[in-house]
Simulated scan of single mutants.
Amino acid sequence: MAESAQPFDLITMGRIGVDLYPLQSRVPLTRAETFGGFLGDTAADVAVAAALLGRSAAVLTCTGDDPYEMDCFAIRAARVFWITGTGLSHEPRRSAVLAAFKARGRAGTTVFDLDWRPQSWTDPEEARPYYAEALRHANVAVGTLDECEIATGVREPQACARALLDAGVELAVVKQSTGGVLAVHRDGTTAEIPPVTAESVDGHGGGGVFGGALCHGLLSGWDLVTTVRYAADSPAAAGRSAQEAGVHAEDR
């Protein structure tokens, strides 16, 4: 990207894929008759969700074990840089992720999606020092209770948030599934958003929609409660429209 080019609102870095999902809703997987291919994996889902909200977005990814080819200017110039923890699990991705964090510096907002995938690691303890290193470079951390426990060693939501702040971020967002979302800012501002009651029609893409909506709120300059409530409500509000737009990932 030339330095005169317009910077992206959002660049995400991590996995992309094509996921196969049933085309029938409200039936168990064993009864599904037809399947479709949809965009999948967190980094891609977050970028697409943000783009659907009107943001300019791009994805930085690679194929297999090929090295990332990074545009450091583009990474520094993006208003929000979202990077996922799965890339820390193996080389050469691990070095690329840490290099991207360092290239980003303290420019703009850097979001570390903890994105813990147990199948990517031989031992959970192996992940913790790499997560700690990544947290030192991020402004915002986002994760489920399981992911926060891997990163911090604690599981209680308030303790998770405090541990993430102590690790270096300014905003900790803890997703608690049926417990809602807790967000704590270093300045003491707190948002506790209860879970949304909704009929589950298609849960795929919930994590990506949440992330894209969170980025939209951060980019809009909304207050913490408004931003987190919008992000928490978006997966339920998206419903089938997320599937039709191709925003698919694991139900997180």
Rank of each mutant, 00 (worst) to 15 (best):
A5S: 14
R240W: 12
C62S: 14
L39Y: 08
L98C: 04
C72D: 13
Y131L: 05
T190N: 06
R55Q: 08
L135A: 04
G37V: 04
W222Y: 08
P195H: 07
Q24I: 08
A159V: 02
I193T: 09
E91L: 07
L224K: 00
G14V: 03
G179R: 01
R186M: 09
R240D: 15
R229A: 13
A49P: 06
A44T: 08
R94C: 05
F38Y: 15
G211P: 03
A74G: 07
P67S: 09
G36F: 03
V201W: 07
L224S: 04
G37S: 10
A100D: 07
T84R: 03
T34H: 14
T110Q: 11
M13Q: 03
D223T: 03
A191Y: 02
V181L: 11
A44C: 07
A237W: 05
R162N: 14
R55D: 02
A78V: 07
G37W: 05
T12K: 09
P124R: 12
G143S: 04
P92A: 06
D115C: 12
H137I: 07
L145V: 10
L171C: 07
Y21G: 02
G168M: 11
V140G: 00
R117W: 01
F112L: 12
G168C: 11
R94Q: 04
G246Q: 02
D202T: 01
T12M: 08
L20K: 04
T189H: 11
C160S: 14
P7I: 08
A49H: 01
W121G: 08
S220R: 03
